[in-house]
Amino acid sequence: MWRSTPRSLAEEQSRLSGHTIEDLNDYLDRGRTPSDSSIDDSPACTVALTRLERLRAALRRVDSAAVDREAERTDGWVATIIDSIRLETRAGRRIPLTSDSPVARLALTEGAVIGVLRTAGDGIDGILISRCRLEGDVTEPGEPITVRLDVSVGTDGMNTGESVRDLTARLRAAVYAVLVQQTELTIAAVDITVTDLYLTTALPTSEGEADE
């Protein structure tokens, strides 16, 4: 294990008005709060802080250059990763389907249903479904099921004069249609919660309107 020798540490402290480089680095980590006049008023400390900040800035450039280089790679590393997870579908519960055959045991996975509902949402401009839950016992035929959707809405998907409510009504209709075509579930309700709202056109640039 390594430690500063007492002598070099003492030299450093006497040079930096009783502080070490480590103290100063911690001070920067804290965002210089609470402010410490024994550091701020020391010319030697100020010089050392400037050096540390220069180092931080230079290393940020090093890091972002390295990240950029990796992002430019075209050797298919992303595809390799995606291929390796594609077969690992999220099954969830087993949703039975009817059949005339006495030996048949047919089913949809809950994951398949959630996936196709997500796709239905993506088919509507301005809608992105983030979460989808099937509430109720889907493993029991005929049980009433409530579909709960958390969605992100972008106003660019709205037709002129259309409200968020109109847009979610379109989503609800699309979701019902998919559920009828793709499942044998008994749907009690489709509950949609808008958790996120995106504005399309930039906010008016006139002064004082940019309240985030």
Partner: peptide
Amino acid sequence: TVTRLAVPSALDAASDALLADRAADGDV
């Protein structure tokens, strides 16, 4: 409701939170 500025392409510009939720639901 969180208000943010416009974004060009849906998923590419989506928030980490939304992407993580979708991926957790099985969206490749």
